[in-house]
Design a protein around this nucleic acid. Sequence first.
DNA 1: GCCCAGGTGGGTA
DNA 2: TACCCACATGGG
Length: 219
Amino acid sequence: MKEFPLLRRMIDTLAAAWGPQGWWPAESPFEVIVGAILTQNTAWTNVERAIANVRAAGLLHPHRLRAVPREELETLIRPSGFFRQKAERLHLFLDWFIARFDGDCARMGNEDPDLLRGELLALKGIGPETADAILCYAAGFPVFVVDAYTLRLFSRHDLCAADARYDQVQVIAHTALPRDTAYLNEAHGLIVQAGKRHCFKQSPDCAGCPLGHYLEPQI
DNA sequence: GCCCAGGTGGGTA
DNA sequence: TACCCACATGGG
């Protein structure tokens, strides 16, 4: 495996080339949470349609969204796919979120992040990526979010095995990168951007990619 | 028509 | 632990 400092250089290279990413794409911390659940194994364009429906119905608020009947919620989020599961998951999350924080994202920031992560993971439908997205982008904790792009990029650059598990990949990021919310926030956004541009594979798409020189054949 | 997308949970060996 | 599968829509 390559040395972890490579990762720091890769992120800084992308940051210099592309500038601030303004990740996560949402207008409020609560919208981050809704998006994090709806985007599970789903293209973001479909999530946007679903969130637009929720917003248009005036339901992009914890208490109001919890009060919506299940079938109505399913109809609103249908474009994001897996709509039956996701409607249940949203309601289960909201039960906890309202009981625990009265639906106030800012109050999550006062908790111990490790304990909060454990509570989130205990909820049906909240796995490690969704939990970490909530911790970083809705609660403001310095947590790196691992996703499919991250695994592809890291394994392509020999930072981890192709079948590495979530926590292993996260440890690499937490070891190599500053434990700073703004930095880790940006790092994930840059990796998503790199993933969308197919920087994780050698192909004509890589022409002009800032990471091009990291893609030289490794002897 | 076919493959894939910013995952997760449940079942089985 | 390590697979396998269901879950559903929309775009390329």
